[in-house]
């Protein structure tokens, strides 16, 4: 989101309360959405539920092209559209809803750092496994990512769009130095990241003690999606399962924020 737009949004946002008809857009859950998008979307949903802000989830095949930043998910609140977790957190703070106000400076620094850890390692690993992994390209990329990504489109366009997406992700991997990594190294990174999160969490219910923060929402979004999504190999989920406190953390958030609402 551009700075001018952001300043505008925060000014306007402060004036208006959270409306009842707020909507969150994401791709079709059944046959289109990919692991990484699903994780980001779930993180935003968890965050909004933790804040106690009601939002209606709407699935659209062209959600990616509707989003102002080209990224999923985005929310439509009143007459404003905001995409991705970071800007959404700022947006809700401007409206007076925040989860991290109780933290001191050092804790806030650590929270931001761990959020970047998740973006930098887990999200990148998800993208790598979806689009770049050569060894199982015949599996994940060919059998899952490409058909799902291009499912709403008809034949020539579907191939073009899927190739375009794959090419873009591969270029990104090369730019950040992940191009030369093997699948095993990527799994190793995921393990390292999970262990770091697990160490940080320890025996606390949430990362910063009793109250959930946006970090908890982000971690939950990614780990829960990895645990519940069926890929051709279960290796990714296995790496997460090796940290038992993260498993119970996911279960706790699911029970607290997702189950009673649906029942």
């Amino acid at each position: 989101m551009s700075l001018a737009a952001e300043a505008f949004v925060s000014q306007i946002a402060a004036a208006e309360p959270w409306p009842e008809n707020a909507t969150l857009y994401q791709p079709l859950t059944e046959d289109q959405i990919l692991l990484s998008d699903c994780a980001s979307s779930l993180a935003v949903q968890a965050y909004l539920r933790m804040c106690g802000l009601p939002v209606q989830v709407v699935c659209r095949a062209n959600a990616e092209y509707m989003s102002p930043s080209g990224k999923i998910p985005f929310i439509h609140v009143g007459n404003q559209v905001v995409s991705e977790l970071g800007p959404i957190v700022q947006f809700t703070r401007a409206k007076g809803h925040s989860l991290s106000d109780g933290l001191d400076d050092v804790q806030r620094a650590e929270m931001k750092a761990y959020m970047e850890l998740v973006n930098n390692m887990l999200l990148t690993a998800e993208l790598y496994i979806q689009w770049c992994d050569d060894a199982t390209a015949a599996e994940v990329c060919m059998l899952i990512s490409r058909p799902r990504y291009s499912s709403p489109y008809s034949w020539p366009l579907s191939n073009v769009l899927a190739y375009q997406k794959q090419w873009e992700v591969r270029r990104k991997m090369n730019a950040i130095g992940w191009g030369g990594k093997t699948l095993e190294q990527v799994y190793e990174d995921v393990s390292q990241c999970c262990q770091a999160l697990s160490q940080r969490l320890g025996t606390q219910p949430y990362f910063f003690n009793k109250q959930p923060t946006e970090l908890d929402a982000l971690v939950f979004g990614h780990l829960f999606t990895i645990l519940t999504t069926r890929l051709t190999s279960t290796e990714l989920a296995e790496r997460v399962k090796s940290c038992s406190n993260l498993l119970s953390f996911c279960k706790r958030i699911e029970q607290t924020y997702f189950e009673d609402k649906s029942s």
Partner: peptide, 14 residues
Amino acid sequence: GADSLAFISLLEEK
């Protein structure tokens, strides 16, 4: 060690 990893990610992203 976990904190190191997190702050290194912060540097790389920001």
